[in-house]
């Protein structure tokens, strides 16, 4: 392709013309193409963003509280996000200019329903506990096991997860297809007969947005159907400060 052959037809004529081969040099063109490809590769976005759907509770005042679906204290799990503080102060401790997120949780009512205004009660009944965001640990047999906050949520939602696991097995064995699986999984997640937690997510202003997305991820991973983002209340802050005071320097 890159050469043009000139043939004088037979070559038996009088004037013997030399056979000429003209070669066209393609190197500059390939160079230029490579440059253009590099340009386009760097300028394009191949990966599209993912989205997380959020539905905040309406902030309208509800007149009849009885009609509200209230979470029973047994099912409630409150997760509180906070940034790591410097020892002995409320200032945020940063590593490489980034905040380090911490995750706390408690079950049921704060302080087990005790009055938060009394400091002694606060210290005694503080049911706040600390956890961590940890990826699954894979043991030597290759079976992953959850750790940190994921394990805690999983433990609370084990009824649902067990059923989901069964569905997954059926799906893997080819007994049901993707659409059927999605439908059934949705039913299981919403099944009123199963005991499942209601997760309330709160965060201090200092924690980072990344931590919030991480918690929302945990909700998806653990098939939690009922969760909501809520504002910090005074008792939450008090418990958090109390916890941090107790565990200072550890």
């Amino acid at each position: 392709m890159a050469e043009v052959q000139q043939d004088n037809g037979g070559g038996k004529g009088k004037n013997h013309q030399k056979k000429m081969t003209i070669r066209v040099d393609f190197t500059p063109m390939v160079d230029m193409n490579m440059l253009l490809i590099t340009f386009f590769m760097l300028c394009t976005t191949m990966i599209k963003s993912q989205t997380l759907n959020i539905a905040l509770p309406s902030n309208e005042k509800v007149d009849n509280v009885e009609n509200m679906s209230q979470a029973s204290a047994d099912d409630a799990v409150t997760i509180i996000l906070d940034a790591k503080r410097k020892v002995g102060s409320m200032a945020v401790d940063t590593v490489n200019g980034k905040v380090v997120n911490e995750v706390y949780y408690f079950f049921g009512k704060p302080l087990d329903g005790e009055n938060p205004s009394d400091p002694a009660t606060l210290q005694q009944h503080n049911n706040l506990q600390k956890s961590e965001f940890l990826a699954d640990e894979v043991n030597s047999a290759g079976v992953p096991s959850a750790r940190g906050i994921r394990k805690i949520i999983q433990e609370r939602n084990k009824d649902v997860l067990k059923k989901i696991e069964e569905l997954k097995k059926q799906f893997r064995e080819g007994k049901i297809d993707q659409a059927k699986y999605d439908e059934l999984a949705k039913q299981v997640r919403k099944d009123e007969n199963l005991k499942k937690p209601v997760v309330i997510i709160k965060s201090t202003p200092e924690a980072s947005y990344g931590a919030l997305v991480e918690v929302l991820d945990e909700m998806q991973i653990n098939s939690i159907s009922k969760y909501q983002i809520d504002n910090m209340e005074k008792v939450d802050s008090l418990m958090l400060i109390d916890y941090q005071n107790k565990h200072r320097g550890k």
């Binding site: 309208e60 201090t204 202003p205 947005y209 990344g210 919030l212 504002n231």
Partner: peptide, 25 residues
């Protein structure tokens, strides 16, 4: 990812106030 939650909360709260309770991240 490193925006603090306070900032995000303000945006979400603003949306909530005008009854845009559903959105995506």
């Amino acid at each position: 990812i490193n925006t603090n939650y306070g900032t995000m909360h303000r945006v979400m709260d603003n949306l909530q106030t005008i009854h845009m309770n559903k959105f995506t991240l």
